[in-house]
Amino acid sequence: MQVFLQTVIGGVSLGAVYALVALGFSLVYRTMGLVNFAHGNVVTVGAYLASTFYLSTKLPFALAMVVAIGLTAAIGLVIERVLRPLENRDFDLMLIGTIGFGIVLDALIIMVWGATGRAVPSPVPSAPIELFGLRIRTYDLVVLAIAAAATVLLVLFLSRTKRGAAMQAVAMDHEAATAVGIHVGRSNAIAFMIGAGLAALAGGLVGPLLYVSPALGGALGIKGFAAAILGGFGSIPGAIVGGLAIGILDSFTAGHFQGYSELVTFLVFTVIIMVRPTGVFGERTVNRA
């Protein structure tokens, strides 16, 4: 039982990070019908920016995160602006465009920060909490709390603000939204901006858990993408459920299948997707794509 619960705890904190990555994928997808293949690299950029402000500029961790999120969101805007002319021509070109951006970001990261990477010390240095023989890292709780808060804010933005409602409208029917005077380009830009901001949040949070290197986003990007598909691509609650599910699944397969854990994780993923191709929360709003 102890192993079981400790395994769940281990999976949940990385799962929360996967969920944040999945949210970014889903938000752009539901608004534009586009899979942003550069998303994983944007996570890496966010992680490097956050760790740079935290370690080199000596800003407090929270402030470093805010600055990193702001800068990374601006990068999201740039990506959208460059790709915008392609949107009404050929959609596949836009997909290739995001792959291209991913490669460019990867090269830029190595040019700016080098290839070796860096370790980020935990901003919450206190000892793990001991509970019924289980040990919970305090930083894991911080990660969970911030991820939960970010999700609530995003949902509130989408459902309660005019701009958010406009984005929902574009997601549901692109042409009808244009007809009633919603600026689709602006809506897309905001989706990209928030998506990149979420990526920076995920990258910044995961820094102290893992090791910040140019390869960081690749691994997180694939798991986050799988999480988004598992939850139902484009669905906000789906991204959360999918992220946590992938995190916990990963943690269990690691315990039982050892060297073959990655294989088993993705086999289970494939079976679920075959049984339920729209994912757990398959939404109607993604039909636009």
Binding site: L209, S251, A254, G259
Partner: peptide, 15 residues
């Protein structure tokens, strides 16, 4: 045995 890409070792370490 763990995989080269593994990030979470809770299960292995708890046992």
């Amino acid at each position: 045995v763990v995989t080269t890409e593994q990030k979470d070792f809770s299960a292995v370490l708890t046992s």
